[in-house]
């Protein structure tokens, strides 16, 4: 938990406050440590004109948006619109891809995430990630969850940390009697919740989820969606999803991205079309393209 956490005025009030500014996708105002619920909401990320290029070819262009603390923010859009690329900018996972470059300004709690003194390893301790395909380590359930605390040297009371994380991921009751079993023996949905537990155990500030349910059956998906709603009391969550109903069910804010082509249709990249409260995106979007997408006419 970070020290500037506010303990009052989250939830409903905050959402109403946010709704007042709903139509404005990009707020160019300066960052300041505001208390949630007292007017402007605290921002976790501020993206200002973000372009991402792989070997010089743009994958997304000109993305500007603010992501708020303790919201579930969904990124939706058709395949190839750069949702995952954008998500991976937020914890500098793109650094691992040779020739990937990020341009524009990306502030995390007001600090330049791509500043010269910022260490991507430190960034990822604070901004965890859950992937499309469950990727538990071929180790025991316990060792999977304990992995993060161990490599970060937080070895005090490891048992309690592991239990806390597994309870947080709603997996404890199912695995408490077989913590030493190999994680590969779990079902796909359990493996994904284990990956969420593994992420929670590092006590991040933000959890990024890249289509976390796309490999899961509907029941497992439902459990993970419930989990996301429960987790936002403690964490800010950004989720990429193909599933519009999922975005509608779990998120507070939704960003719709689309593929844009250049004049001769040689190059394609993702562009942010609309970013607003989820309810508004799904019931009364400002942009016709958003309406067409969420109503299933295209995409």
């Amino acid at each position: 938990m970070t020290q500037d956490e506010s303990r009052t005025g989250t939830g409903r009030e905050a959402r109403e406050a946010a709704a007042e500014r709903a139509a404005i996708a990009v707020r160019p105002d300066e960052f300041h440590h505001s208390e949630a619920g007292s007017g402007a909401r605290e921002k976790v990320f501020e993206l200002k004109g973000i372009d991402v290029r792989y070997s010089g070819v743009a994958a997304v262009k000109g993305i500007s948006m603010d992501i708020h603390r303790k919201d579930v923010t969904a990124l939706i859009g058709p395949s190839g619109c750069g949702k995952s690329t954008l998500l991976r900018c937020l914890n500098r996972m793109n650094d691992l891809i040779p020739n990937a470059e990020v341009q524009g300004e990306l502030l995390y709690h007001g600090e330049d995430l791509y500043g010269p003194t910022v260490d991507p390893v430190q960034v990822r301790k604070l901004i965890g990630m859950v992937f499309q395909k469950p990727n538990p380590f071929p180790k025991s359930i316990y060792d999977n969850v304990a992995f993060g605390p161990r490599i970060l040297g937080r070895k005090d009371d490891l048992d309690a940390t592991v239990e806390h994380a597994l309870r947080g991921a709603a997996l404890w009751e199912e695995v408490k009697d077989r913590l030493e079993d190999n994680a590969f023996g779990l079902s796909g949905g359990q493996q994904q919740r284990l990956c969420i537990a593994r992420c929670i155990a590092v006590e991040p500030d933000v959890i990024l989820m890249d289509e976390p349910c796309s490999a899961l059956d509907p029941i497992s998906t439902g459990k993970i969606e419930d989990l996301m709603i429960a987790l936002k009391d403690e964490f800010s969550i950004v989720i990429v999803t193909h599933n519009m109903q999922q975005a509608a069910r779990v998120s507070d804010r939704t960003a719709f991205l689309m593929v844009e082509l250049d004049a001769d249709e040689q190059n394609r990249w993702g562009r942010l079309v609309e970013y607003d409260d989820t309810e508004k995106i799904f019931t009364n979007p400002a942009d016709q393209r958003t309406e067409d997408y969420v109503s299933g006419k295209v995409g």
Binding site: N91, M93, L96, V121, Q122, V123, R124, K125, L126, G128, M129, V130, F131, K133, N135, P136, F137, P138, F147, G148, R150, I151, L152, C195, R198, C199, V202, L208
Partner: peptide, 19 residues
Amino acid sequence: GLREGAYAMGATKMKVATR
């Protein structure tokens, strides 16, 4: 995916390679 999972928890290259 295993490497990414570890990197996403703030593991260094050395930890990813050895652990």
